[in-house]
């Protein structure tokens, strides 16, 4: 895939060229939205909105990391979705809504990996739940940075483009986000695999 050629064509209004980019990036975009929002349906809506917005404003892309630029539209779409949620809060009907009570969590169908045993699958579900729970408790600006850097594997420069803040701020937010996640994940120590268990007690002054 010649990304630059596709971008140039898309900037000329070629929707087919842009859709090729959509197919290439849609998993990354959806995963980013999912980890920020914590809900599949909302993440799908935000992803669709992000791509529409990206096509309409693609002429503003002046080069550099296209993924970083695209992730900025995703971030904006997620922020819009969260603002909508604040205005019109809804009660989730998912079976894991009462998860805080220690009820059993249903395994999402899209997580099913045919190579995993049921025990491994259950463990993966538990780990994912723990991480998503801790992500949800992070402040939005920390969550966005840690999702892009640690989950999506983007480098600092790309994250800086996506979040539109200086590189130093990215470093600071990422360090603090990791620390908070580490503290939160300690409360799920019994859920985590032995190799992921964390030691107690980091005190930051």
């Amino acid at each position: 895939m010649n990304e630059q050629a596709l971008i140039t064509d898309a900037q000329g209004g070629n929707l087919d060229a842009f859709n090729t980019l959509v197919l290439h990036y849609q998993d990354s975009v959806f995963n980013t939205a999912l980890r920020i929002l914590g809900d599949e349906d909302q993440a799908a809506d935000a992803s669709q909105e992000a791509f529409i917005s990206a096509f309409k404003s693609i002429t503003s892309f002046r080069g550099g990391s296209f993924k970083g630029w695209l992730m900025r539209t995703v971030t904006n779409a997620c922020y819009d979705e969260l603002r909508r949620q604040k205005r019109r809060p809804t009660t989730p009907l998912e079976p894991d809504a009462g998860r805080d009570d220690g009820e059993e969590m249903d395994s999402p169908r899209w997580l099913a990996d045919p190579n995993m045993t049921p025990a491994q699958q259950a463990e993966a579900d538990e780990v994912e739940y723990a991480i998503q729970h801790c992500l949800n408790n992070l402040p939005l600006e920390f969550k966005t940075v840690v999702v892009m850097a640690d989950i999506q594997g983007m480098d600092y420069a790309e994250v800086a483009i996506a979040v539109h803040v200086p590189l130093g701020t990215i470093k600071s937010r990422l360090a603090r986000a990791r620390l908070r996640l580490r503290e939160c994940l300690q409360s799920f120590a019994e859920l985590l695999p032995a190799s992921y268990r964390l030691e107690d007690g980091i005190k930051v002054s």
Binding site: V22, D27, E40, F51
Partner: peptide, 17 residues
């Protein structure tokens, strides 16, 4: 490492415009 091992989900549908 824990965050990086989080399974990547596939998009539930195509988002082509």
């Amino acid at each position: 490492s824990l965050l990086r091992k989080l399974p990547a989900r596939r998009a539930p549908r195509n988002f082509i415009l």
